[in-house]
Design a protein around this nucleic acid. Sequence first.
DNA 1: GATAAACTGTTTACTAGATTAACAATATGG
DNA 2: CCATATTGTTAATCTAGTAAACAGTTTATC
Lengths: 158, 158
Amino acid sequence: MASLRKTERRTEDESLVETPDLEEFIGYNLKRAYVIVQADFRRALGEDGFAPRVFSALSLVVQYPNVTQSGLARMLGIERSGLVAIVDELEGRGLLKRTHVPGDRRVQALVPTDKGSKVYTEARAAVRAHEDALLSNLSEDEKATLMSLLGKIRAHEG
Amino acid sequence: MASLRKTERRTEDESLVETPDLEEFIGYNLKRAYVIVQADFRRALGEDGFAPRVFSALSLVVQYPNVTQSGLARMLGIERSGLVAIVDELEGRGLLKRTHVPGDRRVQALVPTDKGSKVYTEARAAVRAHEDALLSNLSEDEKATLMSLLGKIRAHEG
DNA sequence: GATAAACTGTTTACTAGATTAACAATATGG
DNA sequence: CCATATTGTTAATCTAGTAAACAGTTTATC
């Protein structure tokens, strides 16, 4: 009998079928995994929680107070124009303020409110809990490895 | 001096800043990595290449000829309604045919045309080349590990 | 065999996320 | 001073995807 390539297998009826090409592709697997994590994120944060990108923006504003919108967009890897709605939402919910900066009248630095910092800390705990639960079938080592490998892909940023 | 948690570091001006929380989250890293791979996929396949999801659909139709649209949607993890446009595109480009099945007048099985099979094989080569190039900083072992870890996340599918 | 329930492909309406191009206000570098 | 660049913003557009409804058809149940 001819040897089988590792991507081939026998089906119930003994016809020869390769395992789907798709499963060989990192991109496809990345997408499918991302969809799962993202859906669970939303489920975990509930009705009036944050969308992932809003959470990300708040996170950076809390950790880098006085960041400008341009700077924040750059960090998030999105366009300035796309950030406006996100900042509008966070400002509308009273979680940050657009403040202007003495030396440059173009920029408005983003500063978290007290409520923003508090809400962020709670949301972060919820996100951590969601990831811990969802990824409970990965060991700490495996999570670290995954991070590191994703980091190698992210090295192509910028 | 107090010890620093591993997420803390000194900045140029010696103020204490944790590394951004965001970077701790699998979801965020997954998303950023996915954006990069997806963008490179489109760049590599060019103007009138396939969008990732159209490529995925064609792949499955070639490997599972006579799959139904419902079945294909299930495999791809999307809604039946969302698949219609994808199949329309592939049929419009002459890469597959909707054919009806003797025993069930509801379903139309999807069959790749000769052109469809040929075009798929070429596209697959292009996608492999894109991934090989983009992920050239990962060893084969690392790629296999990444696949396996993404698979553990995908275990939550269905 | 009648009737209820379920499934298939489809259309329509909608939402989310994102990009591009343009703009006025402002800042910076020859 | 003048050209160039940057900032935040709006408006138009695109893609990917969902949800709800529908007609046609099949399956299950009584």
